[in-house]
Design a binder for these strands. Structure first.
Lengths: 340, 340
DNA sequence: CTGAAAGCGCTTACAG
DNA sequence: CTGAAAGCGCTTACAG
């Protein structure tokens, strides 16, 4: 069944069928109904390839997820269980796309060289737009692609204060704000001796730490660099440094740069026979699934993944070069004690 | 850049360019090289829509994941953290497709009515083939689609012994065998008093239980129906029934129909102050990420997700109606005690 | 081994 | 408001 057949059945030209399909206004309502009825009766849907070829934008957006290994280490563990948002994000992107009548083509990029190949996805009009997530920072290929194509949206890729950021379509998380509200949450609960387990050298980790420092400064709490330790976003390293912290300092609370670290800290605290939150308060970051577990019940900090997905999908379709900055918020559970 | 331009540059006709692109044999090697050089020089890639329209099969396969709510309950929790294979499966499908030069279009189906719409994905040649996972059993729409289109592959959808299964392209897991090897693993470790926490009313759950019974029978161990309890594939229910089992029977080991149940059982056992495996041995099913956790260290049973993905991708491309049956295997960790 | 031509199923100026 | 015709960028018999 094609438009010619529909046209014949409805006694109109293919042009008119096309106008009805595309819901153009310059069609007589009676004609429109007549055509629509035939379309419905035969369950006709236009051939997508033909539409594309004839110049229509495709209703597919690409979701490009990096799984790039550099120096024998995965640059960003965005795939798999360590990834904070990956799984939820994929799902939300699909749903957001759906609600706009778009489909999602997902591609996993394992080699940075392939980034430039993505160009053809756009030039061939395979996809209308594309969302790129999890790529290493300072990715020249990717920046080039994103600079020339406003339908390429980059997630968490350029520093939130990069001077060239208006050349790109960006979704950023205000991680400094995140670290700030994490720390303030503890301060507002009466804590003063607050340790920080920092992440690695990613932009997000640096920003979260900056937020911690800012919050302390604002509250005139002395910054004790012995209480800032390196957890590398990893569970085991966090476990080790937490054990040391517990031995060598008088802290009442710990800010973790992510939930994985919080989990390591949790174990170290339990191992010492201490209670959460009675003896030590703990706050995480990312709201991973396990933080909701009954034993853990971790108060944490997160952005709205659904919102992120919806904004990303939107930008990729609209194609305007704008920066969306997402503000994290606190999810209150039971790992922080209120001190009088 | 299109084939006409390439043709001009290489001093041949578009027909010849097309033959080179498609790697047809009837091209003079010298001509071929000449054309190839121009193509490489300009980084030309053919327009996919045009190829499709001209009759070429698309290099896209669809991955259709059900997220269908029936009677206010999600029929199958295949999406989200409760899903056993979902996330890994998506990733492996993409990789398997890549290795064959295919891309993956992912769609989440929330309403069974949409299944029939998928037909147009195929008739429009949007996708070459499609993989359907997580759909409710006895899905008439889906079966109809799969019956008429051999490129539609159904995962875990028809009973492994369904008489009509040769009308479909199927990937099945031999869950009875899974329950069988779980139970045998315990028997081989010297256990005789073995409880079974069964799943819900899905085919997989019924098959796993049948495997448990078969293993006991083969080893001439009496089947005690007081030791077969209902966990519904759920953590909490499993916790409750395990507590009862521990109170009212002399079991030394428990077979769980999935890892979620095993987690519930784990908590119940710990709560009673018992040790794993010294007091109670435990075996799970699915090999979810958390089973590898240090505290849990759960011996479990699983299929090879990569293998499943690769077989599914293959079938969806080739389009032959055949049934692939995957055999689960045991992953040994530390939750089972060897009894002398 | 190669080219000219028809055709895939749409959309869109253009003309009326 | 509607139709005839050109065009999108390929592939593929057909003829040579």
């Amino acid at each position: 069944m094609n438009s010619t057949e529909i046209a014949k059945l409805a006694n109109v030209s293919r042009s008119t069928v096309s106008r009805v399909i595309n819901n153009y206004s310059n069609v007589d309502p009676i004609t429109k109904k007549k055509v629509q009825d035939v379309i419905n009766k035969y369950g006709y849907t236009p051939n997508i390839s033909a539409r594309n070829l004839a110049g229509k934008a495709n209703n597919i957006i690409g979701l490009f997820i990096a799984d790039i290994v550099t120096d024998n280490v995965k640059e960003r563990e965005f795939i798999g269980s360590d990834s904070p948002y990956n799984n939820r994000f994929i799902k939300e992107v699909i749903k957001a796309a759906h609600s706009k009548g778009f489909l999602v083509l997902i591609d996993i990029i394992t080699d940075n060289k392939d980034v430039s190949k993505m160009e053809t996805y756009f030039s061939n009009k395979l996809v209308t737009g594309g969302i790129f997530i999890g790529f290493p920072y300072k990715n020249f290929e990717l920046e080039k692609l994103a600079r020339t194509n406003s339908h390429v949206v980059l997630i968490d890729q350029l520093a939130i204060n990069d001077p060239n950021r208006d050349e790109f379509s960006l979704i950023n998380v205000d991680d400094e704000y995140g670290g700030y509200i994490q720390t303030n949450y503890l301060i507002n609960h009466g804590h003063k001796e607050i340790a920080f387990i920092e992440g690695d050298n990613r932009l997000s980790a640096i920003a979260r730490k900056a937020g911690y420092i800012k919050a302390l400064q604002e509250s005139k709490i002395n910054i004790d660099y012995n209480k800032i330790v390196y957890g590398g976003y990893k569970q085991k390293e966090s476990y080790n440094v937490t054990t040391e912290l517990l031995d060598n300092s008088n802290i009442t609370a710990i800010v973790c740069a992510n939930d994985i670290e919080a989990y390591g800290a949790f174990k170290a605290i339990k191992k010492k026979g201490l209670r959460i939150p009675e003896d030590i308060s703990l706050i995480g970051y990312d709201n991973l699934e396990f933080t909701n577990e009954i034993q853990l019940n971790l108060t944490t900090c997160t952005i709205d993944v659904k919102d992120m997905a919806s904004k990303a999908v939107n930008s990729s379709i609209v194609g305007d070069k704008k920066e969306e900055i997402l503000k994290p918020y606190i999810i209150e559970r039971k790992s922080v004690l209120k001190i009088k």
